[in-house]
């Protein structure tokens, strides 16, 4: 996902002089292609995330589309107020890029676990969340964001994620992408972010689930709540899956979205990480299993 991100960014920057990359002293082995090709549009803000986000907003106020790249909590919680006041309130084209979404950096400890980031970002009225599930969705999200510069949050994993989509999908905010069509009107999984691969694997392993559909939603926000009920109503059940805590997460967001249609509420099941993972340290797959994203739990 990281290489899909940087390749798209470099390609876009070739034709768009307003694209700037700011990093918080992170990105070794990832950001070099951009830094070498566009040294005048690359800035390492050092280990100073609040200034990094503030200056990104300043650059954006002068017409630059600024990508701010760092790990997990550093470009989000560490500079939450700069995102809220400077970026979101002023409606500026800053894309906050967090690598290591969810438990991608599980071994590095709680400081590096991004399992509350949706909760923070989705309460900001102008922020668009982009949580792609595979490298193809990364490319699609990047192209959408570059064509539609706005306050946004791109949450990606690390490296080596498999491609689930055969082609680059057409994405638009709030719209579900069909990965697999099961029984019409039956049950669908709905993922955002890295859990796409998890559910895709599950469905491949379990022939008994062949009636289940699989949808992903890489782009979502406060503004796209209104269009969810008409997508939910097509299924008798929707199981959301996310590598984030339930509190303030994606499933909670979907539930809130359909409160205008209370009869649909019972159709939603939320599969998210149990808060007992907060403080645990292990690799991503172990952490996701510890948090409850197991085959048994996802099928329950």
């Amino acid at each position: 996902m990281r290489s899909a991100f940087i390749n798209e960014l470099v390609a876009a920057a070739e034709i768009n002089e307003n694209i700037v990359l700011v990093v918080g002293d992170l990105g070794f082995g990832v950001i070099e292609p951009f830094a070498k090709r566009f040294p005048k549009r690359f800035f390492n803000a050092g280990v100073a995330e609040q200034n990094m986000m503030g200056l990104a907003a300043g650059l954006a106020s002068e017409g630059f589309h600024v990508f701010v790249y760092s790990i997990a909590n550093f470009p989000t919680f560490r500079c939450a107020e700069q995102i809220r006041n400077d970026v979101d309130y002023h409606n500026l084209p800053v894309t906050v890029v967090a690598v290591g979404g969810g438990m991608a950096y599980g071994n590095l400890g709680y400081s590096h676990h991004a399992v509350q980031d949706y909760a923070l970002i989705r309460t900001m009225p102008n922020m668009l969340i982009a949580a792609p599930g595979d490298p193809m969705e990364v490319i699609a999200c990047m192209r959408y964001l570059i064509s539609n510069p706005q306050p946004s949050y791109l949450r990606i994993g690390k490296a080596g994620e498999p491609c689930i989509h055969a082609e680059i999908p057409e994405v638009s905010p709030g719209k579900w992408l069909t990965i697999r069509e099961g029984y019409k009107g039956g049950v669908s999984y709905l993922t955002t972010g890295a859990t796409l691969d998890l559910v895709h694997q599950l469905l491949n392993q379990r022939p008994d689930l062949k009636s289940y559909s699989l949808n992903s939603m890489p782009l979502w926000s406060m503004k796209t709540k209104a269009v969810q009920s008409q997508q939910v109503e097509k299924f008798e059940g929707v199981i959301t899956v996310e590598d984030h805590l339930m509190d303030g997460g994606f499933g909670s967001w979907l539930l809130e979205s359909i409160t205008i249609r209370p009869e649909l509420l019972a159709r939603i099941k939320i599969k998210s990480l149990n808060a007992k993972v907060c403080g645990m340290v292990a690799k991503q797959s172990t952490m996701n299993m510890q948090g409850g994203l197991t085959v048994e739990f996802l099928c329950a």
Binding site: V20, K40, R41, F43, Q50, N51, M52, M53, G54, L55, A56, A57, G58, L59, A60, S61, E62, G63, F64, E81, Q82, N85, D86, Y89, H90
Partner: peptide
């Protein structure tokens, strides 16, 4: 007015971004 403030410590980083924009261009 270029920028809303109220929470202290936001104006200078934002101004740094503006100055950097002028320099870059």
């Amino acid at each position: 007015v270029e920028f809303s403030t109220g929470s202290l410590g936001h104006g200078l980083p934002f101004g740094v971004g503006k100055a950097l924009a002028a320099r870059t261009r």
